[in-house]
Amino acid sequence: MAIGDPLTSKSQLKGRDSVDLLARTLYGETRGDSASRVGVAYVISNRKSNSTYNEFKNLNSIEDVVLAPYAFSCFNDGDPNLAHCLKPDTSSAAWKNIVNLASNLSSSSNPIGAKCFYNTNTRFDELSYTQNGKLYYKFPGGSTVQISSKISIGAHMFFDYIVN
């Protein structure tokens, strides 16, 4: 199986090469935002090696991280990016850049440190608020957390929260 081979269903993502899965995730999440692409790649890497957040404690591979339910919207049923992840345009400049990044991530400087979360800047602004001088973020359909650090790169906000 070659990187980027067309797939017909999400179930075919299981067992794929880690470079292929990383590339498909980046293609679905950052195809139109090359500025934040390396940051998203490092979120995936950070989640794989993270022991701080409970939601990542048993994720020991790229496959575990990117295919965890609701971890990356591009793999959610009904998300328009799912079709792009299953059948990437392997002749596009974006795909070629993404495959190079996925193949050589360790040679790219990490712009986000150990951060494990991100959203688009617009969506981050919609879901965050300040109260008593502290910044909070409400995960869609989930809990509200206090942000400990954040950095905006391209169209995405990368962040971590305080673990109680």
Rank of each mutant, 00 (worst) to 15 (best):
2 A>S: 14
6 P>S: 12
11 S>R: 13
11 S>K: 15
11 S>E: 15
11 S>L: 12
18 S>W: 07
18 S>R: 11
19 V>S: 08
19 V>H: 06
20 D>F: 01
24 R>H: 06
27 Y>C: 07
28 G>M: 06
28 G>N: 04
28 G>E: 03
30 T>R: 03
30 T>V: 14
35 A>T: 08
38 V>Y: 01
39 G>L: 01
44 I>L: 05
45 S>F: 08
45 S>W: 09
46 N>C: 01
47 R>W: 02
48 K>S: 04
49 S>T: 15
50 N>I: 04
51 S>K: 15
53 Y>Q: 04
55 E>V: 12
59 L>D: 02
61 S>H: 09
63 E>P: 03
63 E>F: 08
65 V>P: 00
71 A>V: 05
72 F>G: 00
73 S>P: 08
74 C>K: 02
74 C>D: 03
76 N>F: 06
78 G>Y: 05
78 G>D: 09
81 N>T: 09
87 K>S: 11
87 K>W: 02
87 K>E: 07
89 D>Y: 10
89 D>R: 14
89 D>I: 10
89 D>S: 13
89 D>V: 10
90 T>R: 10
91 S>M: 09
91 S>G: 13
92 S>F: 12
94 A>L: 04
94 A>R: 07
98 I>F: 04
100 N>S: 15
102 A>P: 01
103 S>D: 06
105 L>P: 03
107 S>M: 07
109 S>K: 14
110 N>I: 01
114 A>P: 04
115 K>W: 03
116 C>Q: 06
116 C>P: 00
116 C>R: 02
117 F>M: 07
118 Y>E: 11
119 N>C: 07
122 T>K: 14
123 R>H: 13
124 F>L: 06
130 T>M: 11
132 N>G: 12
139 F>W: 11
139 F>V: 07
140 P>Y: 13
140 P>S: 15
142 G>S: 14
143 S>V: 11
145 V>K: 12
145 V>G: 02
149 S>K: 11
153 I>D: 00
157 M>K: 04
158 F>D: 01
161 Y>G: 00
162 I>H: 11
163 V>M: 01
163 V>S: 05
